[in-house]
Amino acid sequence: MEEKKAIIEALVFAAEAPLSIERIAEILTGTERADINGALQELTREYEERKGGIHLQAVAGGYQFRTRSDLGVWVKKLRTAKPVGLSPAALETLAVIAYRQPVVKADIDRFRGVDTAGSLRGLLDKKLARIVGRKDVPGKPILYGTTRKFLEVFTLQDLSALPTLRELKELQD
């Protein structure tokens, strides 16, 4: 099992995107998913206990090595490109899409009380939101939803990892 754990570690390290348990199972034929999951949990714990600069993070339905979040200030200096920030308007629009998807633009506008065309276009360009279909009402308006990249960018395992609006409200009170 120790050997398999090492293989899994190597796979996650070499993968370009978060690596799912399914994908690992395809490569490590004959290994139970539960065992793979166990190895990943163990690795996650090991990296955490080591308190080093790297963490194993469950994100977007897979696992990925990421730098520790409080070290961002340093790693940022390494990057030449400016980090892509989201404006408060874009964040609000993204929040509405994340919680109400699939959602039409008219509803996003209504929830925010302003026209969201600009920020919506920005989110589509950044691939944080995408067109998921058309609503079956007259005019067939476009339905929007979030992307896999959204999960990756905001370090979410899946959409259920978002706190519910009710929980947020309790947090606020």
Partner: peptide, 23 residues
């Protein structure tokens, strides 16, 4: 609106890729 505003803040407080965490 208040709920979504809070949700937006909550999103922004998460470790954001290429801002707080890096691969």
């Amino acid at each position: 609106y208040q709920a979504f505003k809070e949700a937006a803040l909550q999103l922004d407080s998460r470790p954001v890729l290429e801002r707080d965490v890096f691969t």
